[in-house]
Amino acid sequence: MIGKVRAGFRDTPLGPAAVIWSFGYLLLDAIAFLIGRAAPGVTLLASLPMFALGVGQTIALNHLRTGPVLQSAWLRWPALVVAVVAATAVQTLFDVYWMRFLAENLFPAWQEWALDIDLQRLLTVGFGYAWTFCLALTLLAAMRAAQDNARRAANAETEAANAVSAALRLQLNPHFLFNTLNSISGLVTLDRKQEAESMIDRLAEFLRASLNADPIEDVMLAHEIDTIDAYLHIESARFGDRLEIQIDLAPGTEDAKVPNFILQPLVENAIKHGVSALQGTALLYISAAREGDMLMLTVVNSSPESNGESSRPPAGTGVGLANSRQRLANRYGGKASLETGPVGDRYRATIRMPFLT
């Protein structure tokens, strides 16, 4: 509650207007003390009604300047000048007659100067108030311009991050499509037409799920797993019994929101560097679990290094993993991470991200 009040005071015209008028009356109190007119704080207390009136009129003037009533600049500025003159006159008359009232009833020592209301005093007091109103309106205009610029910059940054995420997400499909078409071509060359037709059907199913999804929108984990399952159906046609797939989703994780296609590069890397590099059966294990307010997505595959059959490239050198890390950074900042590395005779990639539903 206190934070909301503080933010409202800071981010609305009330805060700057109150600061400007407070500074003006503090300065007036200091001058009154230095010339021996009143003890410290007395003039400041006496000025509280004028302070409230000044802040109120400043907010009203600012509303006139920014409101929809005066749309045309040719009309706005003359009307604003007239309004400032009127506000200055009201503030000046209230000041001199309020001080006269205090001199007559509470502070007899002030009668020497407060009872004398002439043109010179009115002009002097009026000039000070006109200056204060103009200064306040200028600072409020500058503050609003700064807020508008900050808002536009934030929107531009968000749009740029979304564009980058979309571009990174869409980079995945051509790589996968190239590999799949090569596989289909190989099946046709080997006269395995039925298998080639089956792979084409599964490819169409996968591309339909992929292209219908917004690349920058989050999806439910269940939907992500369905898309991965369609992808794995294609790979199963390539590897047959050599590919053993296990998917384990902890209860309650299916409804978690995840970036669209965030698992695709991890699964694709597992196929490329694990299953493809092994001569025998390879395991691909996909799991999801919740740890507090974090979601853990894990992809584990058999590693060819354990059998001395092949060597795996260093973690993070591929486009897929680099893109995944960048997408996580764009979406969650430092709250998400992607860690890869060997675990025993297997290789594991783990994504940590906030658990959101």
Rank of each mutant, 00 (worst) to 15 (best):
W74P: 10
L356Y: 10
W113V: 09
F9D: 04
F178L: 09
N269C: 04
F94S: 13
A288M: 02
L14T: 02
T298H: 04
A87P: 03
A166F: 05
V219S: 09
R144P: 13
R169I: 08
V267H: 02
E112M: 12
S210V: 11
S183A: 15
F107V: 09
G240D: 04
L170A: 07
A153G: 07
L207S: 00
Q194T: 15
D218P: 15
P108M: 15
L181Y: 01
M353H: 01
F176Y: 07
L119S: 10
A209I: 06
G8H: 11
A87K: 04
E112R: 13
I262N: 00
T132I: 11
Q326R: 11
D201V: 10
A89C: 09
I31L: 12
Q171C: 12
S310E: 10
L61V: 00
Q147K: 11
P108N: 14
R6V: 15
K272Y: 05
A146Y: 07
Q264H: 10
E224M: 03
Y231T: 00
Q71V: 08
L75P: 13
G54H: 03
G54N: 08
E268D: 07
L321K: 08
T357C: 04
A142S: 08
P354L: 10
V300H: 01
V125C: 01
Q246L: 05
L266P: 01
V90D: 01
L122N: 01
E291D: 10
K4R: 11
R208V: 02
G24V: 15
R348K: 13
W113F: 12
L338I: 08
S210Y: 06
P215S: 02
A136C: 08
I184Y: 00
L284T: 06
T12Y: 02
K335Q: 11
K272E: 08
R348H: 09
G316N: 06
S287E: 05
I216S: 11
M294D: 12
L53M: 12
R192T: 05
L53S: 03
F127G: 11
A349W: 13
G308S: 06
L181M: 11
F51V: 14
D345G: 12
L106P: 10
I2E: 01
G24R: 11
G344K: 06
P354Q: 14
A230Y: 08
M50T: 15
H233S: 14
I225Q: 02
A288P: 04
N260L: 07
I59Y: 08
G274E: 02
A114G: 09
P40S: 13
M294Y: 09
L284Q: 04
R290W: 02
A154F: 10
T138H: 09
A39K: 14
T227F: 03
W110F: 02
Q326P: 04
C134F: 00
